[in-house]
């Protein structure tokens, strides 16, 4: 088992860079896999066009909401509806502070909802805490048996 990968679903390259930097600068050495839209994220989790998924499931998915093609809510819905991924920890990491999004996110089974702070110092703190918590402290659900 490959311990603790992070799947970062984020379309904004700036945010990708900053998130990576925040995670790396705090000695979180785990691999970060980036999906730039919802379709890529699902391809990574479920395999593309009949091919089996490349890797084991990640330890956590950091999911942006506003994404091209499939938005974050749709991705979350799909993750929760599949036997293989229904227990996968998903953290919504977004700019939105809308109550509607918070309620929808939790209703669809998100494990956490974090708003990205504009202040990069704050942002770095948040990313670090997320990484530490979900990779090191959190006990992940047992890996599902392969198909």
């Amino acid at each position: 088992m490959n311990p603790g990968k992070i799947l970062l679903v984020e379309d904004n390259p700036d945010d990708v860079t900053l998130t990576m930097r925040a995670l790396k600068s705090h000695n979180i050495t785990n691999d970060v896999v980036v999906a730039q839209d919802g379709v890529q994220a699902l391809d990574y989790l479920f395999g593309k066009q009949g091919r089996s998924p490349a890797d084991d499931l990640p330890a956590v998915v950091l999911l942006d909401l506003k994404l091209p093609k499939l938005n974050g809510m749709e991705v979350l819905q799909r993750i929760r509806s599949e036997e293989r991924t229904k227990l996968l920890p998903v953290v919504i990491l977004t700019s939105s502070d809308e109550e509607r999004d918070v309620i929808d996110g939790y209703s669809l089974g998100a494990n956490s909802y974090v708003r990205k702070p504009v202040d990069f110092v704050e942002f770095t703190k948040a990313a670090q805490q997320l990484g530490l918590y979900w990779l090191l402290m959190n006990r992940a659900p047992p890996s599902p048996r392969g198909p």
Partner: peptide, 13 residues
């Protein structure tokens, strides 16, 4: 709430 904040985060970051 979504799009106007993203560039600010880049500027600050």
């Amino acid at each position: 709430s979504h799009d106007l904040r993203a560039p600010l985060r880049s500027i600050d970051g």
